[in-house]
Simulated assay, not measured.
Amino acid sequence: MSALENYRAALHRLMNGRPQIVPKGSAINKDTVALEAGRKRGSIKKSRAENAELIAEIEAAATTQSAHLKPSAAQEVEKQKSLKKAAHGKIANLRKDYEIALSRIVSLVHENYMLKQQLIEQAREQQQQGNVTALGDFRNRHLS
Rank of each mutant, 00 (worst) to 15 (best):
L35Q: 02
E76W: 11
T63R: 06
K79Y: 10
R104M: 11
N93W: 03
R13G: 00
Y7A: 00
L35E: 00
K45Q: 15
L119I: 09
S66L: 11
I58C: 02
I105R: 11
R141W: 04
A74S: 13
S103L: 13
Y7E: 02
Q118T: 08
Q80Y: 08
E59K: 09
Q117K: 15
A37E: 00
R18N: 11
A61E: 01
V33T: 01
Q20I: 04
H12E: 12
T63C: 03
S103K: 13
I44A: 03
A67H: 13
R48M: 15
M114Y: 09
D31E: 03
A87P: 02
K79T: 06
G136Q: 09
E121G: 08
G38N: 01
K84G: 03
R8D: 03
L135M: 08
R48G: 12
N131R: 13
I100R: 15
G89C: 08
D137M: 10
E121L: 14
K45F: 09
I100D: 15
I58N: 00
K96F: 04
L4G: 02
M1K: 04
E36M: 00
K30P: 03
H88E: 15
Q65C: 04
P23M: 02
L115D: 07
P23Q: 02
H12Y: 08
T133Q: 12
N140F: 03
A61C: 00
N29Y: 06
A49L: 15
K40M: 05
S82F: 03
A123M: 04
A86H: 11
S107K: 11
E57H: 08
K24A: 10
Y7G: 00
E111M: 09
L69N: 13
E50T: 14
N112Y: 10
A123L: 02
E121S: 15
I21L: 15
H88W: 14
Q126D: 14
S107N: 07
E5C: 04
A134N: 07
K45E: 06
T63M: 05
K45A: 09
L69F: 14
L115W: 06
K24I: 10
G89K: 15
A34V: 00
N6C: 05
A74Q: 12
E125I: 13
E57I: 03
N112G: 10
H88P: 06
I55W: 09
S26P: 04
A37V: 01
V132D: 14
K81A: 06
N29M: 06
S107E: 07
G42H: 05
H110A: 13
K90T: 05
A52C: 07
K30L: 07
A67L: 12
H12L: 07
A56W: 10
A92E: 11
I105A: 13
V77D: 11
A37Q: 03
I21V: 14
R13C: 01
A27L: 05
G38S: 01
L14G: 01
H88A: 15
A9H: 03
L135D: 02
E78W: 04
P19C: 03
A34L: 01
